[in-house]
């Protein structure tokens, strides 16, 4: 279990992480979602004791990372797959990590086999593709057979087969009762691989919950088309609804249910041709939640659906 308790991290005037407070529970895959630059990696580095929080603390199984007696036996992490000495072979890289935590070398060959990179174990890491490096990083995370696993953007650079492999792998780790914490900036990826999601933006906590509960709480819209466009519009606006005109005859209404919109139209004496509740997609939810907190947003460029 991972506990992040009111963690704040400031770098020379810039707040990277702002009072984050959440728990990551065992037995499920927890997604850590936020736009690029929202503080996900910083939070993970603080959990691993690499960066010192300005305020608050992070603990793993009730202890600060620095207090863990056998860190690799407790926590496995993949932060940046390319952050390895390029001149060392994959096997020697893992052996050096294993030696520091007194893990037998036999285990190195096991995790190499598991990650599917036994055949390149004697090759220098500098020649590895990003996908191979990701697999090596996963092998390293598994070395000590830890109960808690952290992965920072693990699907980057993986081919479709690798992505499927890693999703099933996360699932099986969680099914074994382990704590699996996976960051991503891609909502669609989280939707298929995570059970629980923690959303942050600009270092701030935004929301937390299951995929279903997140979509449920998200504001859906109602698509409506009626006989008298202008009359319908003013009737809805009179009820303080947020209405946007999609074209000359269609409206999109937020804040109201389809039933309410129908009733308003009826009271105003406007015949309806079409009345459709529209459920927000996960992408919409994410865009909606993080709209104010995108560090490098593209303004003026419209995304065509």
């Amino acid at each position: 279990m991972i506990k992040v308790e009111h963690v704040t991290k400031r770098y020379e005037g810039m707040t990277a992480v702002d009072d984050l407070d959440f728990e990551v529970l065992p037995g499920v895959v927890t997604g850590f979602l936020g736009p690029n630059g929202s503080g996900k990696s910083t939070t993970m580095r603080i959990i691993l004791g690499l960066d010192h929080p300005t305020k608050g603390q992070a603990t793993v199984k009730g202890k600060r990372y620095q207090e863990l007696r056998d860190p690799l036996h407790e926590v496995g992490a993949l932060l940046d797959a390319k952050a390895i000495h390029p001149g060392r072979t994959a096997r020697n890289h893992l052996r050096a990590l294993a030696a520091s935590n007194r893990i037998p070398y036999k285990r190195v060959d096991e995790v190499l086999e598991f990650a599917g990179i036994s055949s390149v174990a004697h090759k220098r890491v500098g020649n590895f593709s990003l996908g191979m490096s990701q697999r090596l990083g996963i092998a390293a995370a598994l070395l000590g057979d830890p109960e808690v696993l952290l992965f920072d953007e693990p699907v980057n650079g993986l081919d479709p087969e690798g992505i499927r492999w890693i999703r099933e792998f996360f699932r099986s780790l969680a099914n074994e009762g382990r704590t699996v914490f996976v960051s991503s900036h891609l909502m669609s990826e989280m939707a298929v691989s995570a059970d629980q999601i923690i959303v942050i933006g600009r270092g701030k906590f935004i929301t937390q919950g299951s995929i279903d509960s997140l979509t449920a709480t998200a504001k859906g819209t109602v698509f409506v088309r009626g006989a008298n466009h202008q009359q319908l519009l003013s009737a809805l606006r009179a009820k303080n609804a947020t209405v946007s005109e999609l074209n000359d005859e269609a409206l999109s209404v937020s804040d109201l249910s389809a039933e309410e919109v129908g009733q308003i139209a009826f009271d105003a004496g406007v015949a309806l041709f079409e009345l459709t509740p529209q459920r927000a997609s996960l992408e919409d939810v994410f865009m909606d939640l993080t709209a104010d907190s995108v560090e490098y947003g593209s303004s003026g460029v419209r995304h065509e659906q």
Partner: peptide, 18 residues
């Protein structure tokens, strides 16, 4: 310095936090 230039210092410190 090679630990820093490659970024390997992070996996080193994750294994040896002391």
């Amino acid at each position: 310095t090679s630990e820093y230039s490659t970024g390997a210092i992070r996996s080193t410190l994750a294994a040896v936090p002391n």
